[in-house]
């Protein structure tokens, strides 16, 4: 496998002053580029024994009693830039509860904790790259940046592909949320089309009547070419 070079135009700018935390935390010097080596092209492979039965069910996985909130399915595929579904990819998610509060000692927002919501889940993609979570819709929440900045409803995603060089952490937003366009973190991404690709559409085809709505979120990670010439001699 050969990793395709990363196209940084699809990504946020590291230094994005609208998001104040990025000001002292962004490198000023140029990245050093090079052809990927075994260190970037290989990566950890996680087995199905890692994943517990309720790991992808955030409604029940904390205490076994249901979390409060609007029940939703979040599903989609992990693909690479060549369009192939990535099988066996570990997808980890975390989110605020229905009121917009995280189970974290640093989150002092006045919305209450839900005793039955932990806020994390994980799964491995199937043969075609597909994954599914059952969760509650996270609430929007205020955060210290500008005087009145709010995060849109979002779910954080961490994705492993087949190569360590494919590692990606991103966020999923919800179709129709007016806070997306106002969010300084969203707006670290200069390309409007790249923002749109992080917004999951409502998917009534997967909604379960009298049970839950569904949103579809496909994630594209760096391309991994698999060519006929994989075993070519060095230098050819």
């Amino acid at each position: 496998m050969t990793l395709m070079p990363r196209n940084r135009a699809n990504h946020p700018l590291p230094y994005a002053p609208g998001y104040k935390s990025s000001i002292p935390r962004s490198p000023k010097l140029a990245l050093v580029s090079g052809a990927p080596t075994a260190t970037e092209q290989t990566g950890p492979v996680f087995g199905h024994e890692l994943i517990g039965k309720l790991d992808n069910n955030l409604i029940l996985n904390f205490t076994g009693e249901p979390a409060i909130g609007e029940r939703i399915i979040v599903h989609g595929r992990v693909l690479d830039e060549t369009g192939r579904g990535v099988a066996g990819a570990l997808v980890e998610v975390w989110q605020a509860n229905a009121g917009g509060r995280y189970r974290h000692k640093k989150d002092g927002y006045l919305a209450p904790l839900d005793p039955n919501f932990g806020g994390c889940g994980r799964t491995l993609t199937g043969a075609d790259g597909s994954y599914e979570f059952l969760t509650i819709r996270p609430g929007a929440y205020p955060w210290p940046n500008g005087v009145n900045d709010w995060r849109p409803m979002h779910i954080h995603f961490s994705v492993f592909g087949q190569s360590f060089g494919q590692r990606l952490i991103t966020q999923m937003y919800f179709e129709g949320d007016p806070l997306i366009a106002r969010c300084p973190i969203v707006n670290t991404i200069p390309d409007k089309a790249a923002i749109d690709r992080l917004v999951a559409p409502l998917d009534m085809g997967r909604a379960l009547p009298h049970d839950c709505l569904a949103y579809k979120f496909d994630i594209v990670i760096r391309g991994n070419r698999q060519t006929m010439f994989e075993n070519r001699m060095e230098g050819l």
């Binding site: 946020p12 830039e81 966020q171 991404i189 089309a193 992080l198 594209v220 760096r222």
Partner: peptide, 11 residues
Amino acid sequence: YLPESASQTAG
């Protein structure tokens, strides 16, 4: 080709 999904801060 599909464009890679944009990264977002881990927060």
